[in-house]
């Protein structure tokens, strides 16, 4: 077996770990030079990330035929890099023997751990990584407000927890632009907490994590109203039914009804995390933007506004 060519499909964003289990990072064009079928195991390794080669699914190649095989990679959970740097990826084709039939080397860009591909759906990986940090901080706040939480009707629990967490953590942050001129940069929630600020995706990721860590479902809202202008904020699930809306507001434009898997309609609330004021203001501004761009301008239907559920 021999390589004809290897194409790198995507640069490496180390934080998007599971992404690389689902999607190949490279494709190799290989050729079987024999007159019999051969089972080939493609392996790959990226210098600085993997100590051992990672095996991708084996393929059977027909005699004297060529084929394209995908190469997958695993980013170790503990891998971290502050800098974006050029590295090398090594590709191997193994058949019957331990020794590879052929190998190929290609340069690859390995981004820093704070780099992001700009896809709002991929912010999920940052939310997932800081779950323990968030749960701990949220618990501290709930313990402080235990008396109030104990006396609330159970139906209002999600809403008031979301309000408490916003007013304790998000309200006191400062809006700051990305520190780098090129590419997307996103902070881990613990960094946003320590730096006391961030931009819209940093603030939305942080608030989403705080809510998700205490069992409140969230969705990121990606506003792509213009090619050059994008914005991210948040929806969260109050777990209230439409009939219970009056428990939280007298204004029916401040919430939206979303149907869950079980067919249960629930009240979701849009929150503008960059409002940098209290929850009430963030909850006033969030629906105004959502109503205009997502609903009245048909942003959801045209794809200019996307709701990305965080699981």
């Amino acid at each position: 077996m021999e390589f004809i060519e290897v194409k790198i499909d995507k640069d490496i964003y180390p934080t998007l770990t599971e992404n690389y289990l689902d999607y190949p990072f490279a494709y190799g064009t290989i050729v079987n030079l024999t007159d019999k079928y051969i089972n080939v195991k493609p392996l790959a390794r990226i210098e600085g990330i993997n100590e051992e080669s990672i095996q991708s699914p084996a393929s059977s190649i027909a005699p004297n035929d060529s084929a394209e095989v995908p190469f997958y990679i695993i980013i170790p959970e503990k891998y971290h890099s502050d800098k974006t740097a050029l590295s090398y990826s090594y590709f191997y084709l193994v058949t019957e023997n331990e020794q590879p039939d052929d190998q190929f080397q290609k340069a690859i860009l390995v981004n820093s751990s704070n780099s992001w591909d700009g896809r709002v759906s991929d912010l999920y990986y940052l939310i997932k990584k800081d779950l323990n940090f968030s749960t701990m901080n949220a618990k501290k706040v709930f313990n402080e407000y235990k008396t109030i939480l104990d006396t609330l009707p159970a139906a209002l629990e999600n809403f008031y927890k979301a309000k408490l967490l916003f007013n304790r953590f998000i309200k006191n942050l400062v809006y700051t632009s990305d520190p780098r001129a090129t590419g997307e940069y996103v902070q881990f929630p613990h960094e946003t907490f320590e730096l006391k600020g961030g931009d819209c995706d940093d603030l939305s990721v942080f608030y989403s994590l705080l809510l998700e860590s205490v069992g409140i479902q969230t969705a990121l809202v990606d506003y792509k109203s213009d090619e050059m202008i994008r914005h991210v904020n948040l929806l969260f699930d109050t777990d209230l039914s439409p009939e219970q809306a009056e428990l939280i507001t007298k204004n029916d434009s401040k919430y939206f009804i979303r149907e869950s898997l079980k067919g249960k309609n629930e009240i979701w609330v849009p929150v503008e995390t960059t409002s940098l004021t209290d929850f009430e203001t963030a909850w006033k501004i969030g629906p105004e933007k959502f109503n205009k761009e997502a609903v009245n301008d048909f942003g959801i239907a045209t794809g200019k506004v996307q709701i990305i559920d965080v699981y």
Partner: peptide, 8 residues
């Protein structure tokens, strides 16, 4: 992303 976000 967002130097222009404050504007919108």
């Amino acid at each position: 992303m967002k130097k222009i976000i404050a504007f919108i």
